[in-house]
């Protein structure tokens, strides 16, 4: 679906952060910001909440530990106990390494895939660039015209005053 956006481009990260702060202080909501590297201070400026993705690692990791522990217990104690080197069937200590590895493996993979799902990234997705060069040296601040109450002229003025190199209105899918 194509929507209308007001896109301001910058050539400097610090000016971008200032612009975001300004725009938000005038009660515009920032649709998104596009940058060639993660600009520090933007999280606060945009008022982003801390992502909850790490919780997935914790949960899936804990699941991995449990899985490894129960599986080793099942195979070595319940299903087919076998005396190897006089070690007890239930050698919990010897299972620690595999429990650890499975925790890390599942925890790591889960957050990777959770990120892809949450950020809607997938192989072959057609990129939607807010401006040319946002993956190189350009920073873009994007406001969305939600309804007629959006004061396009005022927003444009604000952005131009905060040092944008170019401000333009674009119909796009972002």
């Amino acid at each position: 679906m194509r929507r209308t956006f007001l896109i301001a481009t910058f050539s400097d990260g610090d000016r971008l952060v200032k612009a975001v702060e300004t725009v938000r202080s005038y009660n515009f909501s920032v649709y998104d910001v596009y940058s060639p590297y993660p600009v520090h201070g933007l999280d606060e400026a945009m008022g982003l909440r801390r992502t909850r993705l790490p919780w997935i690692t914790l949960l899936v990791g804990a699941f991995g530990t449990t899985l490894a522990l129960t599986f080793q217990f099942y195979t070595s104690v319940l299903d087919w106990p076998l005396n190897v080197g006089g070690k007890p069937d239930n050698s919990t200590l010897a299972w620690v390494p595999i429990c650890f590895e499975l925790t890390v493996l599942l925890g790591g993979l889960s957050i990777f895939f959770a990120l892809l799902v949450r950020a809607r990234l997938y192989p072959g997705k057609k990129e939607q660039l807010a401006a040319e060069g946002v993956t190189n040296d350009t920073f873009a601040l994007v406001l969305r015209k939600k309804d007629s109450a959006f004061d396009m002229k005022y927003a444009r003025e604000l952005l131009e005053q905060s040092g944008a190199d170019e401000v333009k209105v674009r119909e796009a899918e972002l």
């Binding site: 596009y34 993660p38 690692t57 997705k125 939607q128």
Partner: peptide
């Protein structure tokens, strides 16, 4: 295909950085 439609969105960057840190921590 390989770049997964990456467009430099800061909302993604924020999650991306935390994910990197968690992976580093693991």
């Amino acid at each position: 295909v390989l770049s997964l439609g990456w467009n430099g969105s800061h909302r993604t960057w924020a999650r991306y950085e935390i994910t990197s840190l968690v992976l580093a921590g693991l």
